[in-house]
Design a protein around this nucleic acid. Sequence first.
DNA 1: GGACTTCCATAGCTAACGCCTATTGCAAGC
DNA 2: GCTTGCAATAGGCGTTAGCTATGGAAGTCC
Lengths: 296, 296
Amino acid sequence: MEVHQLRYFCAVAETASFTRAAEREKVAQPSLSQQIMKLEKELGGRLFDRLGRTVRLTSMGKVFLPRARAILNELKAARDEAAASQSTLSGPVCIGAIPTVAPYFLPAQIASFSAKFPQASITVVEDVTARLMDRLRASLVDLALMAHPTRANDLKFFPLCSERLFAILPKDHRLAKRRNVLLEELREDPFLLLRDDHCFRETAMEMCKRARLSPRIVFETGQFSSILGMVGAGMGISIIPEMAVERRSDCSFVLIADENALRTVGVVTLKGRFLSRVQQTFLEHMRSQSEAKIPD
Amino acid sequence: MEVHQLRYFCAVAETASFTRAAEREKVAQPSLSQQIMKLEKELGGRLFDRLGRTVRLTSMGKVFLPRARAILNELKAARDEAAASQSTLSGPVCIGAIPTVAPYFLPAQIASFSAKFPQASITVVEDVTARLMDRLRASLVDLALMAHPTRANDLKFFPLCSERLFAILPKDHRLAKRRNVLLEELREDPFLLLRDDHCFRETAMEMCKRARLSPRIVFETGQFSSILGMVGAGMGISIIPEMAVERRSDCSFVLIADENALRTVGVVTLKGRFLSRVQQTFLEHMRSQSEAKIPD
DNA sequence: GGACTTCCATAGCTAACGCCTATTGCAAGC
DNA sequence: GCTTGCAATAGGCGTTAGCTATGGAAGTCC
């Protein structure tokens, strides 16, 4: 049973004529007759009575007609829906983001994108790098915002922006008024850091290592806002990226005087993964939005 | 968009592998790949992500899958229903019958057929010959019980039985006790006949003509039972076929002594009309049932 | 890290099948 | 009885779904 056979069948039923049906379907009449006969053979009985010059549905034809019509409609609906899911900028976009990027970067991006494409249904998953990579590989997220080009070669990294790193000090810290600072100068201060699974902990530790400094860690957390609070309370110092800097009365942010004190934020996708048009568009939206923001 | 493409698509979606899907669908893997690619091209986007060794639905694939499944199910249902309407002995049988046959012949036929094939849904239309022929030509009835082979060459006549004709006389008629009678002997009696559009009127008039008798008609009706009642009341005499004979205290039935005093009852179908299996079976049922009943 | 395996895509060929034109066969209408 | 209208048949052609063989990329094993 083939699609064109159903089309021809409906055409004959509707025009009550093989000749007119053939015209409507833009095929020669014998071709159409053949296909109808083939269909009749498959179904084990005639669909039409051929009575001299009139053609009429048999009782089997009568029960078959609505089903054939339904199938043709469903085919059209399926084709249309599929095409629409590609051509219109609608459908699901699931974005992953690490906790040290999500609250500072995503809200504005999503807001501007949603304003342009209100049909897109955006969901966000916040998780640490390792687990985001798993989710990418399982196609549970379409795009992931992460820091540093990934070493995994089944993933692709699109850099968005590089941002400078800052030392965060209590307002009354001896270096709080400086325009910039070397990490070496903070050798004696107790450190507050993110937990082990956060990639920014690694970034910070890397900086310390470059400054030949092994920090005394007195507090670990999962979010910068806790660090800011604790630093403000005088518990110690820390390192944060530029996007986490915020005006506070109890903390000072001092630029780290090291040209390598940078964090690169980018979008990661799974290689070989086909992105729908919305998903692709969201990626391009983020890239174009952040071009302007790349500080250098 | 073709049926096999939908089948292949579902197979890949369900096995998560082109190779396994090809095995399941009994085609070579490249053939299947080609068809999927063709389908993807038609829909304007990929249906699957090919990620190294895993194959996974894209978001378009996810919306397309249930629709493809639904269509395949509908196809199967349509095929099954059509095949069932041919193979199982169910479905509509619309029988036409002339009023001078219907009440005497049909009830037993329908009862025995329904007992054997309770799935058949039988409807009966009672009408005179001319209108039954119209209904046959319009496919409003599938079979029609009529008398005498039809002259119309777009119809086909299957004889069922030939029955003798009887004179019906009031109990106190001078010939009421006879074993048989010649129509000539009834030359003086007033006649009761069916109305003009009933074919049995023609049969009766034919008999009169053969007996060189032009009957004086004193009553016309549409049914034998009225004639029986009126004859019983002594209004006159009439002619009826054997199947209309019934024991009555006020009438006598005397066989007409003419070897041509016969009425042939048969089934008529429209030439070129395809009968479903029930319809065909009903026809054969009637023919086999009445074989035994053909008097000669 | 190189050989092997696994899996999908590509290339080239073949056979089937849908479509074509021309013609026949059958009714219907003048 | 001839023409007309319509579906079926016959025979040729081109497209295409299917095949085998091969290529290339990713994962696996020693």
